[in-house]
Simulated scan of single mutants.
Amino acid sequence: MFTGIIEKMGTVVEKSPNRITIEIEWKDLKVGESISVNGVCLTVAQSENFRPLARFTADLSRETLSSTTLGSLKVGNRLNLERALKLGERLGGHFLSGHVDGLGKVRAIIREEGGKVFEITTSPEILKYIVSKGSIGVDGISLTVVRVINGIGFSVSIIPHTKKVTTFGLLKVNDSVNIEVDMLAKYVENLINKKNEKSGITREILLEKGFL
């Protein structure tokens, strides 16, 4: 489990069809540890802590390669990294599982006072879970949705600090990003769709209580 608060950025130093090696500043990673890499939960398969900058290697499954941006990474690419949440730590963002729901594409980057607004398009299957002022994970970063754009996408506002310490400072128009929607939205949908179970929960009740 992750929070979407990026701790470090890493650099791809080796890439094979189903493996990736990333150079990092951490020197205490352990084999078996979970790391969010651009929003994708990966398991540390190898860890080398003796270099000036440490490295770790992770395996990439067929599903990861086909449904996330990790399959298109190249040596030299920068990545957002977050270690798994520890009990007792502050939850600064929102809960993210590291299981990417789909891809988005940067449609526009608009300068505004105090930062930039990124407009991101995505599929209807993803968009149905996104609401204005709701939470969303983009490349592993916990963000607040500014608005939903005419059924084709959504926008997020990026402050200078986020631009500096994450890959949002490197994104360009037409770049692809990993998207993870708020897991609470999927649980709510699941409850609503269980027509054969008399749970007493209806869409009207959820609307009345402010969940939708």
Rank of each mutant, 00 (worst) to 15 (best):
T57R: 01
Y129G: 02
N77W: 06
D182S: 07
G93F: 05
L85M: 15
G200P: 12
I120L: 02
S61P: 05
Y129H: 07
E23H: 11
S36E: 09
L29R: 12
E7R: 04
S36D: 13
N193T: 12
K194E: 11
R90A: 12
S47W: 04
G71K: 10
N150Y: 15
G151M: 03
T122M: 07
S157Y: 04
D175F: 02
A58G: 07
A54L: 05
G76D: 00
K74A: 12
P17A: 03
G134N: 01
L91P: 00
G134T: 04
L85R: 11
V181A: 10
E180I: 07
N193G: 10
E119N: 11
S34M: 00
E33L: 07
L91K: 05
V131N: 06
R147S: 14
R78L: 11
S34V: 07
K164P: 14
I110W: 07
F56M: 05
N196K: 14
V146H: 14
G98P: 06
G115W: 15
K195P: 03
R90W: 09
E89I: 05
E112H: 13
K105M: 15
K209E: 10
N190H: 14
N150I: 03
L206T: 12
G71L: 04
I192F: 11
T43A: 09
E89D: 14
K128S: 11
P52E: 02
K186W: 03
A84R: 09
C41E: 11
K172S: 05
K116Y: 09
E189H: 01
E48D: 15
A45T: 07
A45W: 05
L65K: 10
R83T: 08
L96V: 12
I141Q: 01
K163R: 15
T144S: 09
T21L: 04
I158C: 12
P52L: 10
I179F: 08
N178W: 07
I205F: 15
T167P: 02
G140P: 04
I179D: 01
I136P: 03
A54D: 06
I205G: 00
G92R: 04
K116Q: 11
L184S: 02
S66T: 12
P124Q: 12
S157T: 13
K194G: 13
I130H: 06
S132Q: 15
D28Q: 06
L207W: 09
G104Q: 01
E7G: 06
S199G: 14
G169A: 01
